[in-house]
């Protein structure tokens, strides 16, 4: 059992509740334990940094200082929300890179009896922890109900792969991290080139025309790629695409109905947990029926894929056709 410090963030207690519920469910099968840091506060999202620099970073750093006091040995601090993860990672990074900021932030922290030395706490995102520490082999071994045939669009969003202050990602625009994880669950992961495009963040609140257009692009592309649901790692992306899809449809006279769930929810379902125990059904655009249908069909599809049942006749490519490149990683088992 590897243990981690955990920063939930405000969304996990409210609109992103299904993220928290599903995360709690998958910790045991993954062999990780998350210890919430004591009396954590809001990270300020993208709002406080737009208002005032030192207070914004002092607010984030209070969490880092608490984590530094609480950590045992090399325990990293894990965040699941993309914005929280980035704010914590950036505060640690910028306090190290900019001594003047470090001095001011620590002066402020001192007023609350706290202190933080940049570099003390390593901030990591949940997805990266699952991929690098737990590993896909362990994930595959925990799968009891493979999601065979469930066509999903992996939507990573912005703030996990970018700006990547710690240099974790080699590919900032088309990383295949989420694809690989979802494939390990047996899902049929569609090629989704908009996987790290922006959902608009707070634009649904401050400039709806801009925000809704970004949501339209993401949903329309997922649908064009024949995905039946989108899968995300971020509560902001989830609520934008889920709850604002109706307003987006009204604005563009479209009829999209694309559910979006957290990757941890699909992990939970694949690990054999009941969908409603991992928050499936809390979405505004409901994913329950699609998921139930896929789970029902999955065993047969899985047998067919394993070669136990003769697969449906595969049409031969036309002899006159040019040889077409195929996506290697969708054929080969990693």
């Amino acid at each position: 059992m590897s243990s981690y410090l955990y920063y939930p963030g405000c969304s996990m207690e409210g609109s992103g509740r299904s993220y928290r519920e599903s995360l709690e469910g998958i910790c045991e099968p993954l062999g990780i334990s998350l210890e919430e840091i004591g009396d954590w506060n809001c990270c300020g999202a993208t709002e406080y940094v737009s208002l005032s620099t030192t207070p914004a970073y002092a607010m984030i750093a209070r969490n880092l200082a608490i984590a530094a006091g609480q950590k045992k040995a090399d325990e990293p601090l894990v965040a699941a929300c993309s914005a929280c993860y980035l704010n914590l990672a950036k505060a640690d990074h910028y306090m190290g890179a900019q001594p003047a900021l470090n001095t001011r932030v620590n002066d402020a922290l001192g007023a609350g009896g706290l202190h933080y030395d940049p570099g003390t706490v390593r901030v990591r995102h949940l997805l990266e922890v699952i991929l690098n520490d737990v590993g896909l082999d362990k994930v595959r071994a925990a799968v009891k109900k493979p999601l065979t045939g469930l066509k999903v669009a992996p939507y990573l969003g912005c703030m996990v792969p970018r700006p990547d202050v710690d240099g974790t990602y080699t590919n900032h625009e088309q990383p295949n991290d989420l694809d690989r994880l979802l494939r390990a669950l047996g899902a049929d992961v569609v090629d989704y080139p908009l996987k790290t495009e922006c959902c608009g963040g707070h634009m649904t609140q401050v400039a709806p025309k801009v925000g809704l257009e970004l949501i339209r692009r993401l949903v329309a592309e997922a649908e064009r790629r024949e995905a039946v649901m989108m899968v995300t790692v971020c509560p902001m992306c989830q609520i934008n695409i889920d709850a604002y899809q109706g307003e987006m449809n009204a604005m563009f006279h479209t009829k999209h109905k694309m559910p979006i769930v957290f990757f941890t929810q699909l992990m939970g379902v694949a690990f054999g947990l009941e969908p409603n125990k991992v928050g499936v059904g809390r979405e505004y655009t409901n994913a329950s029926k699609i998921l139930a249908k896929a789970l029902k069909a999955a065993p047969e599809l899985a047998l067919a894929a394993a070669g136990a049942v003769p697969a449906a006749h595969k049409p031969r490519p036309d002899k006159r056709a040019l040889p077409m490149p195929r996506m290697a990683d969708s054929e080969v088992e990693e």
């Binding site: 009396d39 954590w40 506060n41 005032s52 620099t53 030192t54 207070p55 970073y57 002092a58 607010m59 209070r62 001011r104 932030v105 002066d107 402020a108 922290l109 001192g110 007023a111 609350g112 009896g113 706290l114």
Partner: peptide, 18 residues
């Protein structure tokens, strides 16, 4: 949060510094 006083003291000082 429990220790709102601590957070507010930190932010007051940060505002002054800013």
């Amino acid at each position: 949060i429990k220790d709102k006083k601590q957070l507010q003291a930190i932010l007051r000082r940060a505002d002054e510094l800013e």
